[in-house]
Design a protein around this nucleic acid. Sequence first.
DNA 1: AACTCGGGGCA
DNA 2: TGCCCAGAGTT
Length: 216
Amino acid sequence: MSSSVPCTIYRLLSTEYDLTSSEDEFLHFENPYQILIATILSAQTTDRTVNLVTKDLFARYPDPVSLSTARQQDVEKIIHRTGFYRAKSRNIIAAAQVLVNLYGGEVPDEINKLIELPGVGRKTANIVVHHAFDRADGIAVDTHVGRLSGRLGLSDESNPDRIEQDLLKLFPKKIWGDINGLFILHGRKVCRARKPSCSCCVLSSLCRYAALNTLQ
DNA sequence: AACTCGGGGCA
DNA sequence: TGCCCAGAGTT
């Protein structure tokens, strides 16, 4: 593959999508604590659903100290609508306890430390670094990112960690966060798992899968 | 690698 | 009604 292909992909997707508007949901959170908790709650749920509960949640538990001593039953009532509420309640309380006990009530800004928090995996850690610290130390490989990477021929791997390694080599670090957001938007709206809209896709001219898919 | 946790939104 | 949502933890 030509080394300019990743650059072209980035340019085309940037023209197609406005990342700043799609990230508005997160902008109203005031600090890394709120972003961390909201991101844990956002697993397998839309940002809009999370936003239905965060006002109540942060009014009652404005900081790690207050959340660390919360009763799980009370937290469950507030976040019930975000799904997986038992595990999420347990995890955010335990995470708050770790913040208080190990990090002086602050949210660490390193992937390796964030990943140790209950309820935080590699994807969530990447999201928190990106949104809370305005930086991208990696790329969160969800189903969309994995699917696009395969169809575009950017990676032949199946393991998300290895796909991430391939992507990190292909794209310059300063656009990792943008690539992450753009791939997810494109994977959701155009390059869908089921019926991808290759005829409307700005990347179709450089995509093997589109060439295959549009053959009749 | 497979399985479980789960309510909300949308076509 | 079926499918999807910037997943994580356990077995």
